[in-house]
Simulated assay, not measured.
Amino acid sequence: MLTIEKYAAIDIGSNAIRLLVANVIEQENSPTLFRKNELIRVPIRLGEDVFTKGAISEKNTQRMLDAMQAFRLLMNAHQVKYYRACATSAMREAINGDAVVKMVKEKTSIEIEIIDGKEEAAIIAATDLHSIIQKSRVYLYVDVGGGSTECTLYDQGKVKTSRSFKIGTVRILNHLVTESAWKRMLRWITDETSSYSKITVIGSGGNINKIMKMSGRKSSKSLSYIHLLNFHEKLNNLSYDDRVIKLGLNPDRADVIIPALQIYLRTMKWSGAEQIIVPSIGLSDGIIKSLYKSK
């Protein structure tokens, strides 16, 4: 007996809003399969409003409403059975975040949950990493977003501890990450990883996925610290225009990719990791998995 249902995840981040539609396939006496059907990304960059002015602007509120109306129509067309919409750093810090959530529900009937950093890290931890994580090794899972970075330590194949930091690509671009914020992350990583002789970083987020794709290596393969360091230097030596024209980066990716690299490089250096694995999963995947488990 084969059962196929469509699930959807809406990830309202600080840099972009995403809709992931996935087929959830159940078979008798076999593991449930999760297969991506469609992924739509809209680079609204809510964080640029919130982190500099404290609120989402009227312009971006309308753009968000337009995106949500489109997502509702797409979910209807796909005949999605279950969905979950989660808003992260920008929405939880916006003084008009609750008002925007109410407006979206009235206009589109989509209910948005504004989740805290702990819940965000828990959802990300729900992603299926069993094919990557080995019980004999220790991993630091680093998910870099526009407004925050979630770090989760895995030991013996299980989550040992996790923490969210207000360090993200959009914040860095707008010079809103203080030295004390970096020091808090440094202290947490060194305190949690210093007792281990070897750490491997697992990286997630749109930027590290793009870097992996540009490297020509397959997903779930690893990149070395030296590779990231050299790539960071290469990007720094190119202007924004050259990153768009010569490297073919999207305009909304060409600026945030450099601060993303800074975060990954620092977490690798502080944990002593020489390699970063990129499995091409993120919050949207975690939303689908956690939604399925709840049903």
Rank of each mutant, 00 (worst) to 15 (best):
I17K: 11
R18W: 04
R18H: 14
R18M: 09
R18E: 01
L20H: 09
L20Q: 01
A22E: 06
N23F: 03
N23D: 10
V24L: 13
V24P: 10
I25P: 06
I25Q: 05
E26L: 07
Q27E: 03
Q27F: 10
E28V: 10
E28H: 05
N29I: 07
N29Y: 10
N29R: 12
N29L: 08
S30M: 14
S30Q: 15
S30W: 08
S30A: 11
S30G: 06
T32M: 02
L33W: 04
L33V: 14
L33R: 13
F34D: 03
R35P: 06
R35V: 15
R35H: 10
K36S: 12
K36D: 07
N37L: 13
N37E: 11
N37Q: 09
N37V: 12
E38F: 01
E38G: 06
L39H: 05
L39Q: 14
L39D: 04
I40C: 00
I40P: 02
I40S: 03
I40H: 07
R41V: 15
P43V: 01
P43W: 02
I44C: 04
I44T: 00
R45W: 11
L46F: 04
L46T: 08
G47Y: 02
G47E: 13
E48H: 11
E48R: 13
D49F: 09
V50F: 02
V50I: 05
V50W: 00
F51W: 01
F51L: 07
T52R: 09
K53H: 08
K53G: 04
K53A: 13
K53F: 08
G54D: 04
G54N: 03
I56C: 01
S57L: 13
E58D: 00
E58S: 10
E58Q: 15
K59P: 05
N60C: 13
N60S: 12
T61G: 01
Q62F: 12
Q62D: 03
Q62N: 06
R63C: 08
R63A: 12
R63K: 15
R63P: 08
M64K: 10
D66K: 09
D66F: 00
A67R: 04
M68Y: 11
M68C: 15
Q69R: 13
Q69P: 03
Q69V: 09
Q69E: 10
Q69Y: 03
A70W: 09
A70H: 09
